[in-house]
Nucleic acid binder design. Structure first.
Lengths: 256, 256
DNA sequence: ATATGTGAAGAGGTTCACAGCG
DNA sequence: CGCTGTGAACCTCTTCACATAT
């Protein structure tokens, strides 16, 4: 079944769905918490609740990794922690560089969650010469000039970009040229990268805008009936102007 | 509050897919950049490239909003900026509170992208009495005791949690009780909220773990042929032990 | 008796490819 | 002709429901 592979020559049988990969860290966190409380086994129901997903989804996710549970009992916590860690590649050490040590870069450098899971901040890099040498989170900031050397000497393959938007693409290109193949981008810009380089973006303002959309919708529902009526008027407007937007023209002058 | 909302009865015709909503801010950013360069119109192809998506997807997305383009020409930039802003609810002002003014909270408070798009930081809140009164990004930090009062007086419906994981759930409950119905969570915890409250989470460590997974996979492909061979051995192991994990037992002692 | 593992059905999202309009 | 708007095909992810194992 499902061998429909478009890309890769495919390490077949090993195709873990992207959506599942994105949830594994969640399960891992929940399992780690259980492990620290010395809980020996956990059911899909309990673990799913702790991870904030439903149990059918969790079981399906785990089924892609293998049959790690025991019917009638549940999952062995320690065993699962190890298997998921291995699957995610967290049993090895990942040196990471953070570029752009402003407020956000400093926050990232100080973030404990990095170090605790196989990630090691190999270097902090900033373009400001004033910053050079200053320690942030106990690590001295280095100047951008050193970027290529740092990547190379530390065997860094994962880079974090926390620069202003304007500098991000250029930094990205230097990282990639120096050998980085995975990038976590906090700058509010689309990064262009060659094939084979992974980019994930975290965008604060986008998340807020999505919330605003739903928030607006909630408010709108209270007057849902009124909207119903407005629609009749809308139909009339549409008849006059071929543009069929649901409602609301621009405030002032509008397009041809 | 407590508009015991189960799930939309669906304001039919207005059902914009979630995936589309998530991309609207992206389009909006690209359009804003074009607008600043006084570009009057743009084709789906050009805009898609700027937003980092493919053009078919973009056209489909816009089709949910209405027919805002002109065949043979493209889209009017200003008009689209307005329509998307309105759809996202950015034509109104959203007061936001940020709770937890550590490195991350400070970074968020200083982030220009907030103010520029209808969001206004109404208050910064921290549990540390030492912080009270200190200005961050020009806004004086207030103590957690004031939380309910601040939410109420400013009509805040969106809250940002940037506290340590341990404090997040409690802060969340206070925000919700005070009337907040949308939460952006930066703490590495699953938040439990009642129906009707939206939560979005941003998790730095999860993003890195997903990158690590793909990074590991890249490295693995170089030795894909070797893996092929290993599989034969694996098949033998599976025969002995009903656990059918793809490979790699735990380092030391293992489960029953 | 209980909880996993999984085919099968369903929902949602993406891509194709072209009709239709300016 | 050029570019939008969109049905239809396709693919991915989620949910259901139950056979299966301990």
């Amino acid at each position: 079944m499902a061998t429909g592979r478009t890309h890769r020559p495919a390490t077949r049988s090993r195709g873990i769905p992207e959506a599942t990969v994105a949830r594994l860290p969640l399960y891992l966190r929940a399992l780690t918490a259980l492990s620290e409380r010395s809980v020996p086994t956990v059911s899909s129901e309990e673990l799913a609740a702790a991870a904030g997903v439903n149990s059918a989804k969790l079981r399906k996710d785990f089924s892609y990794l293998g049959s790690y549970g025991t019917r009638g009992v549940g999952y062995d916590v320690e065993y699962l922690v190890y298997q998921i860690s291995r699957e995610l590649g967290l049993t090895q050490d990942w040196p990471v560089v953070i570029v752009g040590i402003g407020n956000l870069g400093a926050a990232l450098a100080n973030y404990g969650g990095f170090a605790s899971r196989g990630f090691r901040v190999a270097a902090l890099i900033d373009a400001d010469p004033e910053m050079a040498g200053k320690p942030v989170a106990g690590i001295p900031v280095q100047h951008t000039d050193e970027l290529e050397k740092i990547i190379d000497e530390n065997g860094v393959s994962i880079g974090v970009i926390a620069t202003p938007a304007g500098a991000a693409q250029q930094v990205c290109e230097r990282l990639v040229a120096a050998g980085v193949t995975s990038i976590l981008n906090f700058a509010p810009t689309v990064l262009n990268v060659p094939d084979g380089v992974d980019v994930r973006k975290v965008d604060l303002s986008i998340e807020l805008q999505i919330l605003a959309f739903h928030e607006q919708r909630k408010a709108g529902e209270e007057i849902a009936e009124a909207a119903e009526a407005a629609e009749a008027a809308e139909a009339a407007r549409t008849a006059r102007d071929p543009r069929k937007g649901p409602d609301g023209d621009m405030p002032a002058v509008m397009p041809a």
